[in-house]
């Protein structure tokens, strides 16, 4: 037999290890999804197929309220962070290298590195000061906090797209009488759109499932879906939680699939 060189899938134990890892990753999720269709109350013993927990969740006003708040918050944070991330990406790629570039880059991606609990405590204290001074206790705090930690998630795909773009296209636009704004509006922006959408989706998903910062920053009566679920689990565990989680999972999978479709390199 010809020696085909090093192939990782031929190493002894490759298949069992791979199987174990995937089982560890997806079995719990699979069980969660399966038990969301359980006819009984238990999240551990199977009593037959039913959609009752989806109906219960759908009828629950607290769930509805938290869902609407979560979607509103995630949408606001996604839009704000994407706009800021687009500007940041343009600022860090469409100019000559400058001193402190790496520093700026690290600063933009800071939320990825600072422990979330630290940001949460810092925001709690900071926002408490503002609350005391202004008396404002609305959704603004949550939107601001979520926008901030979503920026790196929106920034990375946009920056990747900009770096992969042929700079000659902008030069060509300028050569063909486009002003700086026209070149951006008619050439850079249309080519950047897939990256912007991808960034926005990633930001949306990130905001949607955040717990730590949300718990610290939210005022009374500002439960999002994840914080509502956390509260419920403390009291009693029913398969309603499974149903909500499954819907959330489905939404996330859908958005991430869209993200991969948009960021995939087109083989044109």
């Amino acid at each position: 037999m010809a020696n085909k060189g090093f192939v990782i899938s031929r190493l002894p134990g490759f298949n069992p290890i791979a199987g174990l890892v995937f089982a560890g990753l997806y079995l719990p999720i699979l069980i969660l999804v399966v038990y969301s269709f359980n006819a009984g109350r238990s999240v551990a013993s199977w009593e037959g197929f039913s959609l009752q927990w989806y109906a219960v969740a759908w009828e629950n006003d607290a769930v509805k309220d938290a869902t609407i708040r979560s979607l509103y918050l995630a949408a606001s944070a996604a839009v704000i962070s994407t706009v800021l991330a687009t500007l940041a990406a343009l600022g860090t790629t469409r100019r000559k290298a400058f001193g402190g570039q790496t520093f700026i880059y690290v600063m933009i991606n800071q939320p990825l590195m600072v422990p979330e609990i630290v940001s949460a405590v810092a925001l709690l204290i900071f926002f408490a000061m503002i609350k005391q001074a202004t008396g404002y206790a609305g959704m603004g705090y949550l939107i601001a906090a979520h926008s901030a930690f979503c920026i790196p998630f929106a920034y990375l795909p946009i920056r990747a797209r900009l770096e992969g773009m042929d700079m000659t296209l902008e030069t060509a636009a300028a050569d063909l009488y486009a002003s700086t704004w026209q070149a951006f509006r008619f050439v850079t922006l249309p080519l950047l759109l897939p990256g912007i959408f991808a960034g926005m989706m990633l930001a949306f998903v990130t905001s949607l499932d955040d717990v730590v910062i949300t718990v610290f920053v939210k005022s009374a009566g500002q439960d999002t879906l994840p914080t509502y679920m956390l509260g419920q689990i403390r009291r009693q565990v029913t398969a309603e939680i499974n149903a909500i989680s499954t819907v959330l999972l489905a939404l996330t999978v859908l958005l991430l699939t869209l993200f991969f479709v948009l960021t995939r390199k087109k083989d044109e």
Binding site: D166, T168, L169, T171, A172, A173, V187, L191, E268
Partner: peptide, 8 residues
Amino acid sequence: FQSYALFP
């Protein structure tokens, strides 16, 4: 342009 730089 050498690379044509057509707008894709």
